[in-house]
Design a protein around this nucleic acid. Structure first.
Lengths: 119, 119
DNA sequence: TCTACGTTTCAACAAACATTGAAACAATGG
DNA sequence: CCATTGTTTCAATGTTTGTTGAAACGTAGA
């Protein structure tokens, strides 16, 4: 991930409705959510949602697939983790004041302990 | 850090010039950089820089102090690490696909090894 | 106190973004 | 094949954001 992509991703997340979309999709997991469901969940019109979804998709933070009449959106885990990684790489710069607290956040994360055994 | 603050921080970082300011200030360390130095380094007018600095300051990502004629800006490490922590907390949600790669980034970070011993 | 320097404020403008409603498109079931 | 449901496209609009130049402010040195 280069600077341009990172800035685009930050811009995508820097909008309330889009941020909520991402959160909803991450929470939903790999199965994702249909556009219509998302629209009601976020409380935004279908038209407007489409606009934001395109924005997020372009930023590489979400992806979509068709399933019957519905279009199912889901979080792009790779894009999200790339962003976290980029932010940490870019901001740590040899300063534990920045990245050490992130480690604490990691501990608070709900991931199954075994999956992080290699830490 | 709540959702509103996080979104504001993302929006602040979602602009090329502001992103570069933050990177320059993190790189500069706690001593920070004078506004004028930043302006030439980023390649932006003093007026415009002030605009972006206010934005970043409002988002809690930088801080300033006066030193003689100059105003010295520096990174707000707490704000930055809060943001990383928030992103990880919010995005991991029990999914190691997201946070495990962040751990790898941590390993790549240049922090003095001893400071992360408690990981 | 006068002048120079570094920075910010202000007002104006252009560009980008978010939101809306109507219309079009794609897939399904009758 | 028609009607229905779910989603997107399009054009129009209001709002926010980024940029600019001139003017003002604060500090320091002569």
């Amino acid at each position: 991930m280069d600077e341009r992509q990172a800035v685009a991703a930050f811009a995508a997340l820097g909008q309330e409705n889009r941020f909520r979309v991402v959160r909803a999709l991450v929470t939903a997991g790999p199965d994702g959510l249909a556009a219509g469901v998302l629209a009601t969940e976020i409380g935004v019109s279908a038209t407007n949602l489409t606009f934001h979804l395109k924005e997020l998709s372009h930023a590489g933070l979400i992806q979509s697939r068709r399933e019957g009449k519905s279009i199912i959106y889901s979080a792009a885990y790779e894009g999200l983790s790339d962003l976290i990684a980029f932010l940490m790489r870019d901001c740590c710069q040899g300063r534990p004041e920045v990245c050490a607290p992130a480690v604490a956040a990691l501990a608070a994360c709900d991931c199954p302990p075994g999956d992080l055994a290699h830490v």
